[in-house]
Amino acid sequence: MCEIYGFSGKREKELNNDLREFYSHACDHPNGWGLALLDQSVPEITREVCRADRSELLSGRLSLPVTAKTALAHIRLATVGNEDYDNCHPFTAVDDSGRSWTLIHNGTIFESDKLNRYVFRQKGETDSERILLYLVDRINEATAKAKRELNAEERFEILDEIISNSSPKNKLNLLIYDGELLYAHTNFKDSLYERKDGDGVTISTRPLTDSGWRPVPFTTLIAYREGERVFTGADHHHEYIFDPSSYKPLYLAYSGL
């Protein structure tokens, strides 16, 4: 699969130590890496199709202070989509209100007819990019119906419904940022943790230090604003159970067999 990382805080924090540890896991996730610094209206995103711990670009980036109030990072183990720049996370899209959305995903979509139409709109080949395109379309539909920009609670309710309805039979470990809220969701046991301290909240697939980590609420969408949890969705109870045989049709499809 992949690993994901996020930070949300009230003030800028230097993230180098966490990022070095996070990217050191790339030996198990060698198919690309990405970093998004999200304090500006236009996300600052760096992506590369190579193993993160062998990247000169990333090494140079981490040799200088990396500071942010909000950040996302990703290392990729390809399951859906080839080893290609357009398949590297994070993915971004802008809704009709001009709001930028940024998404990273550790998981796989096995069943979702609603995402199929985005195969012809996306730049890459991943199911993760299709998730982002779908949720932005849903935001746009609600915005048009309301005839105004949606507020934070309304946006959260839409994502809560989308993720709840998409979770059966699919692995959805997600971090999404909409310019105000950092959303987090997991439905795979022991695969997403959070650490809360005076700087804010850090979220990672695996704990990055020896202490202070606890599991992210399970099968439940949550959202943070400046490091504080502000919304908690309903528990949808759709746990993903790993089944190696479920990947065979995906591998056959993408190998052309």
Rank of each mutant, 00 (worst) to 15 (best):
171 K>S: 11
152 A>Q: 14
164 S>G: 13
156 F>P: 12
146 A>C: 01
172 L>Y: 00
140 N>I: 05
172 L>G: 00
147 K>W: 10
136 V>M: 03
141 E>R: 12
153 E>C: 05
152 A>C: 08
168 P>V: 02
146 A>P: 10
139 I>S: 03
161 E>Y: 08
169 K>P: 00
141 E>D: 14
142 A>M: 04
167 S>D: 01
162 I>C: 14
157 E>S: 13
141 E>P: 02
169 K>R: 15
143 T>Q: 13
136 V>N: 07
165 N>R: 11
155 R>N: 12
159 L>A: 10
149 E>P: 08
155 R>D: 06
173 N>S: 04
138 R>G: 03
157 E>R: 15
167 S>P: 05
140 N>P: 09
152 A>K: 07
149 E>D: 07
163 I>P: 13
173 N>I: 04
175 L>G: 03
175 L>K: 01
165 N>F: 11
151 N>W: 06
165 N>A: 09
171 K>D: 08
149 E>G: 12
170 N>D: 01
160 D>S: 13
142 A>W: 07
160 D>Q: 12
164 S>A: 13
158 I>E: 06
158 I>T: 11
163 I>Y: 12
164 S>V: 08
139 I>E: 03
166 S>T: 06
137 D>T: 08
163 I>T: 12
155 R>G: 15
158 I>Q: 07
157 E>G: 10
145 K>P: 02
145 K>T: 14
154 E>Y: 07
136 V>K: 07
175 L>T: 11
160 D>G: 04
161 E>M: 03
174 L>T: 06
139 I>F: 15
146 A>G: 07
156 F>A: 05
150 L>Q: 07
156 F>Q: 09
164 S>K: 06
164 S>Q: 12
153 E>Y: 09
155 R>I: 11
143 T>S: 12
173 N>H: 02
173 N>G: 07
143 T>A: 04
173 N>V: 05
137 D>P: 13
151 N>D: 15
139 I>W: 10
174 L>A: 01
137 D>E: 15
